[in-house]
Write a protein that binds this DNA or RNA. Structure first.
Lengths: 345, 345
DNA sequence: ATGAAAGCGCTAACAT
DNA sequence: ATGTTAGCGCTTTCAT
């Protein structure tokens, strides 16, 4: 009976079935005025019967807008980036935007990811966890990120090399987080705080380290060279072994929880009790943080708020409407658990 | 000087600048034959000069294809789903497809996510971590998932209620993983194995539990009722307290590493040594697994292989080309660490 | 309150 | 080897 139709139904098909003009169908679908209630019903019924779905390609072609936001994220399952991605998607959908993702990593750099987003058509781009691409190229120090200046871009901290009239910056850089973690440890009475940093290429890692450094300076505490990890527990473990071997180390701030886990393990193996001998603070508040041995004191960010705030500004920029001022950093929250305590007397 | 052009350059603009017809531009851009090398150069130069980018909306409108794959994923930063997502994106890009994501969760069910994908225009849909929507609705037991039968759908295990001529199923259900974990413990000499399952609504959780049950049955080991968690360390901890209180428990298989972390903690608090008194196996091999106390024996899946295999089949279905047969489950791999040992004599 | 016609940027037939 | 024409499905003037 029913032959497999090759082409999905168009608004013309709906119009024919409803016995009206194609334009009237368009009116109904877009909720424009000047349509009789009776006609509107008839059109909607026809659309439902045919399983009609608006062709976004045609719509986008005409409007020159895609109603899609593209996100460049880091190709990994790290807790922070993943959580932010989820929050961004929810927010985008809420604002009526479709959501496209391009990951970086494994040779596919930022420029590549942006290019693939632009190629598919997006109204704006979010750069989620920028790394410093410019130190990639040993020859000329790499090159700046070139994004079509006509496409609005959102990032959560200023990205050197990423510039333009339609670049909007807001959110949570991590400086505040680094500062809070360090102040917490200093406040407990530790003479200074050691830092296991994220990879230097990540701006987020630099920000957290900067917060740490600023807090030390403000308190007049001696600054130690940071140990650099790669966000992984393995790298935290390596750093932890170094720290465990140094009897003067009593307080450590790891730039994420995963590395903190590695530090905890190294400390345990070296027989250095946490928090009795050494205090440890992580960052992210991964679900497992509360169930480690000991439960980890850490810093938590409100990704929902960050996404909401950022996309609201981005949407305003897309519409070229005023759009409130970009707030500075959204605050991070310290979650105190059992891995921190005053230093042994 | 340069006035802000509102409309991005079209192939007509390129043609004008290069002094050729618009069709010739199209030819060059699509690598079609019958273009002089000299003309080709001229066109490419013009395109570069104008910063021309092909308008995908127009292209999609004409072709009736979007060259985009949509993925429905679970709105969380759980390690498994996140890793699969990353792998799927890489694969999709490799195959020349743009990548759209819609998350489920928080009221936005599977149907909703699929709808939003279809609305934006995708050539196919991947259902990444399906849950049983049908028990959502207490009235009529929920309803089947309705997906336009003309859009190919890929899932990694059969999804009841999701049916149609263009549904392709392949990958790794988790049955094999559950079986391997259980056999490992049984092989060490444990009389039986307890199970901390994922939420029953997740098909993945049911599969892992089934593998566990099958392995027990095959070995003639007594089956215990599974304790159900929600993938979180907190839920694993709750289950772990129950298990720790039962002196007959000597071997536990947790359906993911996060829950295993909770179990480990509960055991530690109860003074039950791992692995001397109780062995624990997790699943996922999260990066932290090797750095827990003790390092966790777990099951690892090859998400890259799963994504590659699945998307290859999906691409074939999109092109309506034969496309090899759907293989069964891809094998999971046991990673033995220190959380498992033979039972105490 | 409704319809007709034009055009968005592209690709596919069909010339030349 | 290159150009002309038509048309994808939609929205937007402009008529009626």
């Amino acid at each position: 009976m029913s032959d497999a139709r090759r082409r999905p139904p168009s608004s013309t098909d709906v119009a024919a079935l409803a016995g009206v003009s194609q334009k009237t169908v368009s009116r109904v679908l877009n909720g424009e005025p000047y349509v009789t209630e009776e006609v509107r019903e008839r059109v909607l019924a026809a659309a439902r019967e045919l399983g009609y779905r608006r062709n976004t390609a045609a719509r986008a072609l005409h409007l020159g807008r895609f109603h899609r936001i593209g996100v460049v994220s880091i190709g990994s399952s790290l807790y922070g980036p993943s959580s932010l991605l989820v929050a961004l998607e929810r927010q985008a959908r809420e604002l009526g935007y479709a959501f496209a993702v391009a990951y970086t990593g494994e040779g596919a750099g930022l420029t590549n990811a942006v290019e693939s987003l632009l190629a598919q058509g997006v109204d704006a781009i979010v750069v989620s966890d920028p790394i410093d691409d410019r130190i990639d190229d040993p020859i000329d120090g790499g090159q700046d990120l070139r994004i079509d200046p006509d496409v609005p871009v959102l990032s959560f901290r200023p990205v050197p090399g990423l510039d333009g009239p339609r670049v909007v910056v807001t959110g949570a850089s991590g400086v505040d987080a680094g500062r809070q973690a360090t102040e917490h440890l200093l406040g407990l009475g530790h003479a200074t705080v050691w830092h296991v940093a994220g990879p230097h290429r990540w701006w987020a890692a630099r920000d957290r380290a900067r917060g740490w450094r600023e807090a030390l300076a403000a308190a007049g505490a001696p600054e130690q060279p940071a140990l650099e990890g790669d966000w992984s527990p393995a790298s935290g473990y390596a750093a932890g072994r170094v720290l465990a071997a140094n009897p003067r180390v009593t307080a450590v701030f790891a730039a994420n929880d995963d590395m903190a886990i590695g530090v905890l393990r190294a400390l345990a193996e070296a027989g250095r009790a946490v928090p009795e001998e050494v205090s440890v603070v992580g960052m992210d508040d991964i679900p497992a943080a509360a169930y480690l041995s000991p439960p980890l004191t850490t810093i938590r960010q409100d990704f929902e708020a960050i996404a909401r705030h950022g996309l609201a500004l981005l949407a305003a920029e897309i519409e070229r409407s005023p759009g409130g001022p970009a707030l500075g950093d959204l605050p991070a929250h310290l979650v105190v658990r059992r891995s921190t305590a005053p230093p042994a007397k």
